[in-house]
């Protein structure tokens, strides 16, 4: 058993357990804390795959920024327990079950019927190099320029949208 394998088991166990704990907590703030732990273990898994940049960005963006905003909103709302929120809202429950089923089917299809190794380079050194900042930057600004710019445009549009919604009248 190599050291990497032990680390893989360690991080995947934390990821799986924290994900289960996250959805079973009645208190939304505790759920948020376990989601942060989950993001960390996934960042660890990226590190094992030598994707240092993605691993750090996972922590900066998800654990460092998005979850802080989540906690901010949760604390401001002072959310009641889930039972009060969901009682008598059967349509939402059915919708949630359908969405969850669809996502599950999609992931199951990807795992069992596609070959995930196809995209990998057989050359180990080349695939390690693919995780560096330089490589990702080069790919983003050459091969994937259009989707990258489209994503940037979408973010800009949503920022302006949020501003307009928050500031009801402009003088």
């Amino acid at each position: 058993m190599s050291f990497e394998f032990i680390l893989f088991i360690f991080f995947s166990l934390i990821a799986a357990v924290s994900a289960v704990i996250m959805i079973t907590r009645p208190n939304p703030v505790m759920s948020a804390i376990f989601l942060i732990i989950n993001f960390f273990s996934i960042a660890g898994l990226y590190l094992i795959l030598h994707a240092q940049f993605i691993s750090i960005v996972q922590i900066i963006v998800y654990a460092g920024a998005i979850m802080v905003l989540f906690l901010f909103v949760l604390m401001l709302l002072n959310a009641k327990s889930e039972k009060d929120i969901l009682s008598g809202k059967n349509k939402i429950k059915i919708f949630a079950v359908v969405i969850a089923g669809l996502v599950f089917a999609q992931i199951a299809y990807l795992i069992f019927f596609s070959s995930p190794g196809k995209a990998l380079s057989p050359d180990v050194a080349a695939s390690i190099k693919a995780g560096t900042v330089e490589q990702i930057g080069k790919e983003l600004y050459t091969n994937y320029l259009l989707p990258f710019e489209a994503a940037g445009f979408l973010l800009l549009a949503s920022t302006i949208g949020a501003l307009v919604l928050a500031k009801k009248h402009f003088d």
Binding site: Q52, F53, I56, V68, F72, M75
Partner: peptide, 25 residues
């Protein structure tokens, strides 16, 4: 000697906020 050292610093400093936020909550 991390080749994403600067980003690592930014990641850690962005996590420091949890201390204050969770402590207050």
């Amino acid at each position: 000697n991390l080749n994403v050292g600067l980003l690592f610093f930014l990641a850690m400093s962005s996590l420091g906020v949890y201390s204050v936020v969770l402590g207050g909550w």
